[in-house]
């Protein structure tokens, strides 16, 4: 895992348990790298997407998306409902595989490896590309067991799990609130706490990328603010791709913004497409495409 120079120079302190550990990563990596590619290409580009189409059975939900995602940045996917931004997000960890009839065409390269080639095991992809969902979805287990779930699957030693749990919860800014009730049900937490728990759970497996699907849409403004602060801190360690309905949120937290729009064909099927992809500051001040401008100024969508 490559650490950007500006990231290590940042004033955010990283707890030891979660600082990228070469040993533990190496242990998890061995089989997968063998399955994927002989050597990880050192690049600041994490994902390269070219002409990505997504179909649900015969219905084309998304077409011709081409964009690159940079490491240690927050990339926001915005656009009106039904434009395929969540569908696109779920391509990055092959979550669409779980949907009957979903099919992805085009190429998505992850560190130079085609994610959709036959030899790639989606399970290995998901250990590197974690996900936080729209609605907080903790398991009906204790707070501790929620965070420990992923590391246990990855074969982290029993003696190390305590540290991983504490580190992840600290990183997710939840430790102080839950350290005295780790054995209690996760359902006793508030919505915002549950979502931070889900973030802790996702980063406990030390992923490379964290996908977030409208992580604040079920939360109040205060909880949303905390999650946004958290995202800003997390990008020192992780590459983050976030879907959001909230344009101010995209403007506040993201480095790059992709604006999607939706067009209906003659049969009334609505297919999403990428309209514009640019640095966030540019998209919100000087968009190229009139559709982007219409959307961000609130005239459409």
């Amino acid at each position: 895992m490559s650490q950007e120079p500006e990231a290590s120079a940042s004033d955010v302190t990283v707890p030891d348990a979660l600082a990228p550990k070469d040993q533990s990563r190496a242990r998890i990596d061995v089989s997968a790298v063998a399955a994927m590619a002989p050597q990880r290409v050192e690049t600041s580009t994490v994902f390269e997407c070219a002409d990505v189409d997504v179909y649900y059975t015969d219905f084309r939900a998304l077409r011709d998306v081409t964009l690159d995602v940079n490491s240690h940045e927050v990339t926001a996917l915005i656009g009106p409902s039904g434009c395929g931004k969540t569908t696109f997000l779920r391509c990055f960890n092959r979550m669409n595989d779980l949907i009957e009839g979903a099919r992805v065409e085009g190429t998505i390269n992850y560190h130079g490896v085609d994610l959709y080639q036959d030899e790639v095991d989606p399970v290995e992809v998901r250990r590197r590309v974690g996900m936080v969902f729209q609605k907080p979805n903790p398991f009906p287990k204790s707070i501790y067991d929620n965070v420990a779930y992923g590391p246990r699957l990855a074969g982290v030693k029993r003696s190390e799990i305590d540290d991983v749990v504490e580190g992840s919860l600290t990183r997710a800014a939840l430790w102080d609130e839950v350290k005295d009730r780790l054995k209690m049900s996760a359902y006793g937490l508030s919505g915002g706490q549950q979502q931070r728990l889900c973030i802790a759970r996702a980063i406990a497996v030390q992923p490379d990328v964290v996908l977030m699907d409208e992580p604040c849409s079920a939360l109040d403004p205060i909880a949303t603010g905390r999650i946004e602060e958290l995202i800003a801190e997390l990008k020192t360690d992780y590459t983050i791709i976030i879907v959001t309905h909230n344009m101010q949120q995209a403007a506040r937290i993201s480095d790059m913004t992709a604006f999607f729009s939706v067009q209906a064909n003659e049969m009334g099927q609505r297919t999403g497409e990428l309209v514009e992809y640019a640095p966030t500051s540019l998209i919100f001040t000087n968009p190229d495409d009139p559709r982007t401008e219409a959307y961000i100024t609130g005239r459409v969508g």
Partner: peptide, 18 residues
């Protein structure tokens, strides 16, 4: 059991049987 829990588990790299 909500689909969201299965997705959460799959998202953490769990196989179907797990």
């Amino acid at each position: 059991v909500p689909l969201a829990l299965r997705e959460a588990s799959a998202g953490l790299g769990a196989r179907k049987v797990t």
